[in-house]
Simulated assay, not measured.
Amino acid sequence: MTALTLPAYAQLSDADEVALSDLFRRGTPPNTLRAWERDLAYIAAWKMAAFGRPLAWPEEEKVALRFILDHAQDLAGKPGPAQDVAQELIAIGLRVALACPAPATLDRRIASWQAFHRMRNLASPFAAPLVQQARQKARRANARPHAPKSPRPVTRDMLESLLATCDDSHRGIRDRAMLMLAFASGGRRRSEVTALNVEDIGRDDFRAKGLLWVRLLETKTTRKDQAPKLPLKGRAARAVMHWLEVTGLREGPLFRPVSKSDRPLPRRLASDALRTILRHRLRSAGLPEDYATPHGLRAGFLTQAALDGAPLAAAMKLSLHRSAVQAQKYYADVEISENPATDLLGD
């Protein structure tokens, strides 16, 4: 597949590149930067198609309002300026369909637009009362049931089924260590697992306590100067140590590709490798490869913590959730199913 070539007006200008290269670029996680760049390309293309002009800084309120209105309705079967703009965006590969985008997608693009205003120390047009009101109404009008990031949480029983497919080859030893670390250290995101280096695994307490310390240099909720150290115990710690012992790794990427001849290669796994590995293990366990996603390991950790009666605050210290409301959702699903009121009619 050839790379998509965007028209000039959908690409970052020199001024935008300068803004991204300053404090925001150095102090923002790479995934967030990539999302900002994609969203700004979309917004710039949309404004050129809708108004025939490039983005302005600060942007006009009428432009912000039109952006909300154009993205708060299903444009299929509705000929007009909004549909014409959407068709142009579809033609250059920046929009998929005429259907109304999910409210979360609209919120993310607006958040990116606001972030670029903050970079320039400018007031955002989305702070205007009329624009805020339109945004709230659009969110309510297009609200959708929450779709989980994984069809199912990977709780302990499912994880055990996956681990049972891991043999004693280098690939099996690696996959076992990755899956156990991702689950047992608090439900790590896939990018956090593949970003780990050998130097991030503290082994001083392993011989005496069977304990490893996993240092996360950067996560979605922490910065490099806040790098948390998370404990890894028992079988999970032994699995990681086994991987280190059989490979003899001393530095560099912790988890690496394994060749067809079962030889670890001297490079880092791709950031999405955990998804590929999970799909392979699901198939090997006799399950559909879309039975769960890597986020299922994170959801599974919190769900299992709730099933085992671990306090929410204790689980959050490992998962590194900043929002108790977000983490509580996993506990709420368990608690309501165990509520005695659900058994009022008996079996």
Rank of each mutant, 00 (worst) to 15 (best):
A208G: 00
D308G: 09
L230M: 12
M241R: 06
E59Q: 10
L23S: 12
V85D: 11
M1K: 08
V154S: 12
R283T: 12
A239W: 03
A184V: 01
E335V: 02
A285S: 12
S271L: 04
P266R: 05
L98R: 08
D272F: 14
F51Y: 08
G187M: 06
L33C: 04
R135Y: 12
L94H: 02
W36G: 03
R66W: 08
G202Y: 00
L55A: 08
A306E: 03
A134C: 02
H71S: 06
R156V: 15
E61A: 11
L254V: 02
A128P: 10
L344V: 10
P228Y: 06
G346K: 05
V258Q: 12
C100H: 00
A314W: 09
A341L: 12
L287A: 12
R263D: 10
Q11M: 03
L211D: 01
Q304V: 11
S323E: 03
H146Y: 12
S284C: 06
L20R: 04
L274W: 14
L20N: 01
G210S: 09
H170Q: 04
G286Q: 05
A315W: 09
L196I: 13
V193H: 04
V246G: 00
F67A: 02
R25V: 09
S169H: 02
Q326C: 05
H321M: 10
L217Y: 00
A237L: 07
Y331H: 11
